[in-house]
């Protein structure tokens, strides 16, 4: 989670060139008006896919009514493309109690994206606040809070999540809480590093000389510098958070039964891998595609926010 590229963004020092064809990133942005086609695809394809998921999550459950309670045992374990007893077409097949998988996966997308966004918002706000506080104040506050973050980062995050989830019990709010607890140090570290790099820059010193208070400097000098790397980190973390949510739900520690999530659907299909592969495989692929797209988008955003391009 703390690879050199992230660290270089955070510290505001030039990172190594990431790919050979990124000639536009060598410090002369004005000289290269258009990015290479591949770079643009790397931004727009994942963005398009993610937008597709968001739309499916938003309007999918409205279009194809999904009632997690209604089962139809005579239609159970039908392969993708089967006609059901009521005449409807199950495009992605049915699960072990005869529920259509397509609306179930769309409902799952809604839950997963919602949990992911809420977690990142909570962890991001809390993490950034703590990071800026540490970076700006320094001293004992910094030492204590950052060692806490270090200790937590030394702990495998999924193990911590399982532990916290087992203590809190399973509900959507608790999943968000659990995952926020495991994610905040990452935001805090980046925010702290960026604050350290910014607070003594010339423009900040100038503002201070002109009599600006701490709050003014944090708001107008530090916060804008912190925001963009945090956005990048958030994108990268989204993938991890969604996989973590699915893992918790798979272990029945996450989203409670009755609310479909990708993790619970995959867990349901675990015993049917040989006889009804589609129950676990399709949501698994859907989840994998989403996480890969988020990862590519995060990498691309990271490259674009290379400090040589975004000097303030």
């Amino acid at each position: 989670m703390t690879d050199p590229v992230t660290a270089s963004v955070a510290l505001g020092t030039p990172g190594p060139p990431v790919e050979a064809d990124t000639t536009g990133d060598d410090g002369r942005p004005a000289a290269v008006p258009r990015r290479p086609r591949r770079r643009r695809l790397r931004l727009w394809i994942p963005l398009g896919v993610i937008a597709g998921y968001v739309v499916a999550g938003l309007i999918g459950p409205v279009l194809a009514r999904y009632d997690p309670i209604a089962t139809s045992v005579t239609d159970r374990l039908r392969p993708p493309g089967s006609r059901l007893a009521d005449g409807s077409l199950a495009l992605l097949g049915t699960d072990q109690v005869g529920r259509d998988l397509l609306p179930q996966i769309m409902q799952g997308a809604r839950v997963s994206i919602l949990v992911g966004a809420a977690t990142l918002l909570l962890a991001g706000v809390v993490g950034a606040a703590i990071g800026i506080l540490c970076g700006y104040l320094g001293g004992v506050v910094d030492a204590v809070l950052m060692r806490l973050a270090d200790i937590q980062l030394a702990f495998p995050s999924i193990l911590l999540a399982v532990f916290v989830a087992a203590v809190l019990g399973s509900s959507v709010t608790n999943v968000v809480l659990t995952l926020s607890i495991t994610t905040w140090p990452i935001f805090a570290r980046v925010a702290r590093a960026q604050t350290l790099a910014t607070k003594s820059r010339d423009f900040a010193n100038a503002a201070r000389t002109l009599g600006a208070g701490s709050w003014h400097i944090v708001r107008h000098c530090v916060l804008p510098a912190v925001a963009s790397p945090l956005m990048v980190i958030a994108t990268v973390q989204l993938g991890f958070v969604i996989v973590a949510e699915a893992s918790l739900s798979f272990l029945s520690l996450g989203i409670p039964p009755g609310t479909p999530s990708w993790g619970t659907t995959i867990a349901n299909g675990r015993d049917y891998l040989a006889s009804a592969w589609w129950i676990a495989t399709i949501p698994g692929l859907v989840l994998a595609l989403f996480v890969v797209c988020v990862g590519v988008l995060g990498d691309e955003l990271r490259d674009r926010s290379d400090p040589n391009l975004s000097t303030r």
């Binding site: 309670i69 209604a70 089962t71 045992v73 072990q96 109690v97 029945s252 039964p257 009755g258 349901n268």
Partner: peptide
């Protein structure tokens, strides 16, 4: 968890039928 043969599916199916007569049963695994 794991108490019964096909337990979760069986519970889902019963809960579905109970909902049809207005009895809302919350599953607690």
């Amino acid at each position: 968890t794991g108490c019964c043969t096909n337990g979760n599916s069986f519970a889902d199916a019963m809960i579905s039928d109970w909902a049809k007569v207005g009895i809302v049963v919350k599953p607690e695994e």
